[in-house]
Amino acid sequence: MIQRKKPERFRLRRTMIFLSAQKPGLIKDPLIYGADSLMLDLEDAVAENQKDAARFSLYHALKTVDYGDTEVIVRINGLDTPHWREDVRVCVAAGADGVRIAKCESAGDVIAVEKAVEAAEEEFRKEKGRTLLMAALESPKGILNAQEIAAASGRMFGIAISGGDLRRTMQVSPVRGGIELNTARGLVVLAARAAGVQCFDTVFTDLNDEEGFRAEVLLDKQMGFDGKSLVNPRQIAAVHEIYAPSEKEITAAEKIVRAVRENAAKGVGVFTVDGKMIDIAFLPGAERTIALAKACGMYKGEL
């Protein structure tokens, strides 16, 4: 029996790939894809009359397949369905790292799931607080309540846009450049940063439009998203490549970290590095670049 180690609330989550928990062929060996997180789906990818089958399949997969350091999150059914409470029980019993709350619209939704998770942790004698939460925002109301949702629980690690339902309710369709989700994306990034959690952009479903996909991933990176939800393993490498810092960025970050340390020791607060003004405010960004470079296997220096 596999015992998964305690989940980390904050970790690298550039890529999160959706896999139907009902399909044995999909969930037996997805760690070979190299995604940061797997999203085993009990919701939309599973037909209404197969919800029970998906739970048994999920349970045994988590208990027998070694997913290693790849994070395993489970998307549960919406709070307006009769399924979500049993979904929470199986997630906790099987030791999933976290639960993705579908169609989340308020802090109250997060708290309802948190209570069910807590009860399941007690029932199955799991460490209290072990199971993480994230919320999918799929409606205008969910987007507008992003901040209270993101801050609703100490278990929350992030919020994600779910574009399918959101575009439908906004009466728009996908547009090159993303203007149709512009406001929603901006609000979600702001809310996540205000609450101190991560944020993830919606899936890109046109697998034949490689150029459009790359453009959207670049937009996500530039807007400040931590990562993206994916529908196909083919999409993983491109996200990791686009999110990787450049050699130039790594060198600059390294210089900044060293310069801040040296100058702090000398009692100097503001100075220049390669002609640019630098102060303590640049340190967290530079440290993040180094951490990302390490995760991408691109930094072997001393920092």
Binding site: P24, K28, D52, A53, F56, S57, H60, K63, T64
Partner: peptide, 11 residues
């Protein structure tokens, strides 16, 4: 796989 067999029998 064995885990799938078990899951299907239980279901």
């Amino acid at each position: 796989l064995e885990c799938t067999l078990r899951a299907r029998v239980e279901c």
